[in-house]
């Protein structure tokens, strides 16, 4: 897990890098003409993403002095190392929490009637369509020492618990924000699983738990992998929610980078951290792609889902 090497990229959610790449196999005039369709996207990406990114990379090896000082600093400076590890840990915890909540939820969606399915889907999607800021501030209000959550907890004799500014609070808020990214791919995969397979397993003598573990769970794995990857990757670079709900003492990588830039004006260190974040993300994606590919040769159908989303 503890991958912390060189560095880059701030919290900027889905700007699919791959989408800009044109199909580019055809030789004909038409094929060449279709390449032109990609031009606007490529221009936007190059001007607003590639150039700044490369500049940041450049700064990370040139300021304050030329060399890899910024990178070695990440590995040697206790603060940045802690932040990197904390970010990985938080992302992992949020991913696990999301999976634990989303998996049964998605399963429920596959077994209820059409009307209830629509309701369950809306419950997941309506927050998804609501502004991230609005949702995050809602969590700030809810998690306050005398907020709604503590009032409810108090009513059942627990607390008050300190949640705002704690890892627990950040985990809850982040998991809620990330939930749709797991529910949707897991649900899509589950919907494609033939219910008869579970019946078959039972009739062949499998106890319900064994039927789930040996048949249903492996078949739903592609959705789980896709959802987990999305949450993990998005969590690594998450800025808004951790900085509003969490505390500066418990800051995550994106916040740390922001402090380097906005308060310390240390572009070199920020660049190095950003590159580190990018590398961690890519390693993660590569690992998942490898995992789903080896499994994909065995479970023909759904494995592509993960690959597609990755």
């Amino acid at each position: 897990m503890a991958v912390s090497t060189p560095p880059r990229r701030a919290s900027r959610a889905p700007t699919e890098p791959g989408s800009a790449r044109p199909p580019g196999r055809g030789r004909g005039l038409l094929a060449r003409a279709t390449l032109l369709l990609a031009v606007p996207a490529v221009v936007v990406l190059v001007v607003f993403f590639v150039v700044p990114a490369l500049r940041l990379l450049w700064l990370s090896v040139t300021t304050p002095e030329p060399g890899l000082g910024n990178y070695t600093a990440i590995l040697t400076d206790e603060v940045s190392l802690t932040v990197v590890l904390r970010t990985l840990g938080m992302a992992a915890i949020v991913t696990v929490v999301c999976l634990l909540v989303a998996y049964p939820y998605a399963y429920l969606m596959t077994i209820v009637s059409g009307r209830w399915r629509a309701v369950l889907l809306a419950v997941v999607l309506i927050p998804f369509w609501t502004s991230l800021m609005a949702r995050t501030f809602a969590w700030v209000v809810l998690l306050q020492d005398n907020g709604l959550v503590n009032t409810v907890l108090g009513a059942v004799g627990i607390g008050p618990l300190r949640m705002l500014g704690t890892t627990a609070g950040v985990t809850v808020a982040m998991a809620q924000v990330m939930l749709p990214f797991v529910v949707l791919p897991v649900y899509t995969t589950m919907r494609g699983i033939d219910r008869k397979l579970v019946d078959a397993a039972l009739s062949l003598g499998a106890r319900p738990v064994a039927a789930f573990r040996q048949v249903y769970l492996p078949l739903s794995f592609p959705g789980v992998a896709a959802g987990a990857t999305l949450v993990m990757v998005l969590s690594l670079g998450f800025y808004v929610t951790p900085s509003l709900v969490g505390s500066p003492q418990q800051s995550m990588l994106a916040q740390f980078i922001s402090v380097q830039v906005n308060q310390l004006v240390n572009f070199g260190a920020a660049g190095a951290l950003a590159v580190a974040l990018l590398v961690v993300t890519l390693v993660l994606l590569g690992g998942v792609a490898l995992l789903t590919r080896t499994r994909g040769t065995r479970s023909s159908a759904g494995a592509g889902v993960a690959g597609g989303l990755v």
Binding site: S203, G205, L219
Partner: peptide, 17 residues
């Protein structure tokens, strides 16, 4: 799972993995 009957389905229901 405790009936000990061999079931064959129209859709085969083979475990794809």
């Amino acid at each position: 799972h405790r009936r000990d009957l061999g079931m064959v389905f129209q859709s085969y229901a083979l475990f794809p993995h």
